[in-house]
Each structure stands twice: as C-alpha cells, then as structure tokens.
Amino acid sequence: MSRVAAAGGAITRAPPAFAITRTRRIDWPPLLLLLPTAISLGSVCVYPILGGLWLSLHNTMLATRENRFVGWLNYRTLAADPDFWSAWRHTLEFTAVSTLAETVIGLGMALLLVEWFPGRGLVRAAMLIPWAMPTVVTSKMFGWLFDGQNGLVNWMLRSLHLIGGNIDWYGSPNTALGTIVIADVWKTAPFMALLLLAGLQTIPGSLLEAARIDGAGAWQAFWRVRLPMLTPILLIAAMFRALDAFRIFDLVYVLTGGGPADSTEVLSTLTYKTLFSALEFGYGSALATAMFATEAAIALCFGILIAHSLRRQER
C-alpha cells in the first residue's frame, strides 16, 4: 500500500517529464487497443446495416437472381402490405403489454427483495434461472406447459374449476399472442426485478427513515420516496426491455412459427421468412429498415421521458 502511495507521490512531483512522453506517443496505444473492436463491430454491425439500407432499394431475389435498383419501390409496396401492418401491430402490442407486465411484476419482486429476510440470496439465485435458460428451451418448455391436450396449465386450471374444458393456448388465434406474452414475462420479469433491486438499493435508507418518522406508512413511502427516486432507472430498464421485446424472434418462431392464421406473426419472424423462405432479400431489407425506424422511434420516446424525469429529479 505504501509503495502505491509513494508512486502516486512521485507522479505528482514530476508532471513535465510525463507530459512529454504523452505527446511523443500520441494516442496510438489506445487506438490500437480499440482497433480489433472497431473492426469487429464495423464489419458485423455497421457494414450490414448500411448494406441493408442499400439492399432495400433493390429488387434482389436469390431465387430468380434478380438484382436491379428500384428506388423506393419496396417501401411503397410495404406501405400497402397488409401482412406488414398486421405484424407491425402485433409487435407493438406484444412490446407494450409485455414491457408493462414485466416492469410491474419486476417492481413487485424488487420491493419484496429489498427487505432483508433469511434465504434472500437463494431467492435471488433462483431468479437467474429464467435468464440463463436458452430462449428456444423456454419456448419448448411453454409449449409443453401450455399444451392444448396434456399441458400442466390446462390441468391445473381444470382442477381449480377455472375452466371447463381444455384451452388450445397457442393453437388458437385468440390466445396465442397472450401465451407468448406469458412466456416472455416469465423469462424476463425476474431479470427486470434484479435491475430494479439494484436501483432501489441506491436509495439512501435515511430518506426512508425520515419518511417513517414523519408518519408515512410503507404504502406512502413507496409513492412519495421510492417511486420518484426510482423513476429514471425504471424508465431506462423499461426502455431496454421494450427495445429487446420489439425484436422478439426465438419465442414466436419456435412456439407458433407466426401462426395460427398469422395471429402471432411479428416483424422479426415476417422479415426472416421474407429473407430465408421467399428469398426476397430486397423486400426483406425494406422490412428490416422499417423495423429499425420503429425501434428508433421507441428509443426516442423513452429518451425524452428519461431526460424529463432526470430533470425533474434534479429540481
């Protein structure tokens, strides 16, 4: 420890020599250390995004080997494509409902876990199971739990006399999207809870203590102290969740494949099918770009909300 202190002292005593070495080796090392990352992200993320924009202006079809520049044609087709708008609506519905449910349930779990009780570590550990499980496995697992004939959920609901007969959860257009929402909430609400728990733990205990002395009950303390303090983190976590929910692919593709009767078709699955089943790379890229634009709009809305809540907190 004392050696470190001595070294620190030596630095403060000799700034000129240090400044000279800095200027001589101008910024090369940091740039070299960042170079591999730049190459990786540049070639796998930036280049394909630009390539996708370019492709979306072409009528590229792998099947017919067509590849002609067509300008905005794909976007005009898209604007009049009922399949696109239906998928767009499903995706937004799914995003809104699942993000809201995950935030509310996650907040409930976090408020419980912020209090100490014996075995809390165990509970927190169990909450990582849904996060660690491959989404494809989650999908199959819910396929089995919600199976229309022998699923455990149907059996439990029947035993409790909540339903008369079996429900074909993801086999019927009325309940399929809801089943996918349930599976997504299962998988991500605990993770949301852990994020919010971390946020709750940064709220100083003295504030809550002060509220208690002023006669606030737990309910008031939540609305007056915890929730206002937590709002920015809540919004940031919800934004990440919403952006992630918006690109849902695995759950839908494996559980329903977009069916029945396209009732669960979302933008990612529609785009994937356009790319890899129809092999229409031009139109598929236009779909992806439209998705990108919607995602940017969602991020912007949350960005404004977050900035607003931060400013209010500073006041």
Binding site: Y47, S268, A288
Partner: peptide, 23 residues
C-alpha cells in the same frame, strides 16, 4: 465512444442477418 459501442447492441438483429448472409 462507449455510448456508440453500446448503442450497437440495441438495433434489431434481424436488420443485419440478410446482408451478413450474403457476405
């Protein structure tokens, strides 16, 4: 720079799968 790197992880991944496949 950090923000730029992080923002890369937020776009829809379906947007890059087509061009990457061709590449």
């Amino acid at each position: 720079l950090l923000g730029l790197i992080l923002s890369v992880s937020m776009f829809p991944q379906i947007a890059i799968v087509g061009p990457l496949y061709l590449l």
